[in-house]
Design a protein around this nucleic acid. Structure first.
Length: 312
DNA sequence: AAAGAGGGCAACCGCGTCAAT
DNA sequence: GATTGACGCGGTTGCCCTCTT
């Protein structure tokens, strides 16, 4: 007959994960790697469904995850990808290293959606909302009049020749947005420019987007490509995405090859975070530190080699 | 200071697809 | 080929925290 059931439905724990459970899961994945989620709860000594373990690992415990709010450039990238892909969060997440589909989905629903609506952009179609509708919508949501910039966006957006204006308007809005960000300064998307103004951040994001999206066919084939770009030492399947900006189409733009991927600190900051509740509580004592270092260094070496191949 | 409202996020649910038997 | 279950994904829920009154 079919496969064995993934877990005994009876006695399966639900709800928030405890530190103890996290510890067990991390220990297990680090020592055994990711395989066969249905076997994980039993082997790791967890009273959880394999599905729940996978979710916990991919959305919260994975070492290559970034923390904090999405950066402006990441947000911009999400918007643009969403305009092309719709609610395919996993595909969108695949383009944002260290971000999970769940995280992006949540961020979209709680932040970006509202921002777009506020700016008179339909978050579903990414088209400008009807001026009256947007005004109504805005008044409904905010009990206030539409700000001048939104009105301008809506008005300009009515022009047939300005299809991409909503995104540009958003960029402008982001650029002007002076609200503080709690996001740490590291951005895998354009870390080279993140230290400069938010304008350059948006611009580089734009270049990146242009690069990715100039040819929708190329984008789609690229997005549907399931083959991992590089090897991740922990997951073996969802590595830090290599972001290469190589502008050659426009002679006015200096040809640059800007490749970024998470630094050692970024990739392993979670290990440092473990110290918050005692890294040894995780039972890492049993793991040879040299093994971890070597595996990660080896993976980084592989990344470097892959990068060189790409650049050749 | 307390209570209620709203927002954010982690986790669960249900469905579709693929693979094993 | 049919059946069954794992896996992955998107949608939804519910808890917790913060803000407002």
């Amino acid at each position: 007959m079919g496969r064995q059931p993934c877990c005994d439905k009876l006695g399966v724990k639900k709800g928030p994960w405890t530190a103890e459970e996290d510890k067990k899961l991390i220990n297990f994945i680090l020592t055994n790697g990711q395989c066969c989620w249905r076997a994980v709860p039993k082997l790791a000594g967890l009273r959880r469904c394999g599905k729940s373990c996978r979710l916990r690992w991919t959305n919260y415990l994975r070492p290559d995850l970034k923390r904090g709010l999405l950066t402006d450039s990441e947000e911009q990238l999400v918007i643009d990808l969403h305009a092309r892909l719709g609610n395919r969060w996993s595909k969108i997440a695949a383009r944002l290293p260290g971000r999970t589909d769940n995280e992006i989905k949540n961020h979209w629903n709680t932040h970006i959606k509202k921002k777009l609506l506020k700016m008179g952009i339909d978050p579903v179609t990414h088209e400008p909302l009807n001026k009256d509708e947007s005004a109504e919508e805005y008044n409904k949501n905010n009990g206030d009049s539409i700000p001048g910039d939104v009105q301008e966006i809506v008005t300009v957006g009515e022009s047939q020749s300005q299809q991409t204006l909503p995104v540009e308007a958003y960029q402008q809005n982001v650029t002007n947005d002076s609200s503080p960000k709690t996001e740490n300064s590291s951005s895998n998307i354009d870390s080279s420019s993140s230290s400069s103004s938010s304008l350059s951040s948006s611009s580089s994001s734009s270049i990146l987007l242009d690069n990715i999206c100039n040819d929708d066919g190329l984008l789609m084939s690229s997005l549907w490509l399931d083959e991992p770009l590089l090897v991740d030492p922990f997951t073996n399947h969802h590595p830090p995405t290599l972001v290469t900006t190589n502008e050659t189409a426009n002679p006015e733009i200096t040809t640059t090859t800007n490749t970024t991927y998470p630094s050692w600190e970024d990739s392993c900051s979670w290990l440092l975070d473990c110290q918050d509740f005692g890294i040894h509580d995780f039972g890492f004592d049993s793991i040879n530190d040299d093994d971890i270092d070597l595996s990660i260094l080896s993976a980084l070496q592989m990344e470097e080699n892959a990068l060189k191949e790409l650049l050749q």
